[in-house]
Simulated scan of single mutants.
Amino acid sequence: MKALRQLVLSLAVLAGGLYIWITYVPAARPLLERAGLLDLLGVEAAQNDAAGQGRSGRPSRGVAAVITETVGEMVGEDRITAIGDGRARRSVTVRSNAVGVITDLSLAAGGYVESGAVIVKLQNEEETIALEQARIQLEDARAEEVRIKRLQASGATTEVRLRETELALRSAELAVRQAEFDLSQRQIAAPISGWVGIIDLEEGDRVNAQDVLVTLTDRSEILIDFRVPERAVRNIKVGQAFEVTPLGVSDESLTGKISAIDSVVDRASRTLLVQGRVANDADMLRAGMAFSVNLTFPGDTLLAIAPLAVQWSSDGPFVWVVRDNKAVRVTVDIVQRNSGEVLVAAEGLSAGDQVVTEGVQTLREGAEVKVAPPDQSASVARDSQ
């Protein structure tokens, strides 16, 4: 009998504790409902609703107080990230025009030269002498032409002799031009303005024709070659801006513009080659650097909701929508996450609906809710715990 009385007393204490837990702990009812124990215990959904207002003046535990935000609309973005290779706007390899010994080298490794500046001079004594000889022969040919024309005026010479003199004068003029050209080949000028790379030349070195002297690089702009997936073909355009970050300087973000688009999609990778330009005013970038390129294209119009409204279950993300003062669960598909909103697609959800952002812990399908003003969000948070 003593054991029976102890058993009855224990069951009474357990039942009382269970009743208090169900009545005053908001999270108890959803937990028991998911476990399928509400019907077993005979607890009706409206049990707490009849309790009315509590001593604090807030709604009873059967009506959940929540904070909501309005569902908006926003145009989604299609973002593409690619790795591109940089190269200089122009790069010219300067070669020797002739065979000879370097007598003057106006270059410094890493220096800058202007277009047209003489950077290398070769020994030119032989060419200088040849030019002087050609000029002497030209003066002699001119004098002979004057003499023959005087004789021809007096009838002392023939037309054939005059023709020969004119041809000799023309040949002498061409010989002077050839000598001047040969002399000009003994000095090499910079074809573009640009920066000098590492050089391995010294005055006194002998070079042959077509030997590489130096490489000049115009890096006032950096060209970036990168590839985009074929889905971007309809959206990408010349002149479109993009963000670019040097991989070696990850905290530096620059803006470039697309300058050229290839006409063929690569069959193997299903990508399209694109070229962009980035200004290098600070001379921070170099040819050969790798870049992270970010392109953004406008997409479809999607529903925008607050990040706090998104809840998760074993079936995926969902939100609680307040309709007729009751909670309705709506499954959503997350399309894009931004810092201030989440873009979703969902059936049964439209712009202007109210989604619950605070007080979601006690909600269940069809539960009555009361939307509290935003300034009571702290109170709602305490009640939902």
Rank of each mutant, 00 (worst) to 15 (best):
R90N: 11
L138Y: 09
Q123N: 12
G42H: 06
R34H: 11
G100H: 00
V113I: 14
A117S: 12
E139H: 13
A82H: 02
A117G: 07
L40A: 07
T68F: 04
E73Q: 12
D140K: 15
Q123K: 08
L138S: 04
L38N: 10
A109T: 13
Q47V: 08
E125L: 10
I67Q: 04
Q137T: 09
E125T: 12
S91R: 13
V75S: 11
N124Q: 10
G54H: 02
D78C: 00
G36W: 01
E73Y: 00
V99D: 11
E127I: 02
Q123F: 07
Q123G: 05
D49C: 06
Q53W: 03
P59H: 09
P59F: 10
R79N: 07
A65Y: 00
G111H: 06
G42N: 04
V113H: 04
Q137S: 15
T103E: 12
R135E: 15
V71W: 03
V43Q: 05
R61S: 08
V99S: 10
E73H: 02
V63I: 15
T103L: 07
R58M: 13
V71C: 05
L131T: 01
E127R: 14
N97D: 13
G111A: 14
M74I: 06
S91L: 07
E33V: 04
T128L: 14
V118S: 08
G110D: 14
S115H: 08
V101P: 00
A134H: 07
A64D: 05
L107W: 06
A64W: 11
L138C: 02
V63D: 02
G110L: 04
E73D: 08
G100K: 01
L37S: 05
G86E: 00
S56T: 15
Q53R: 10
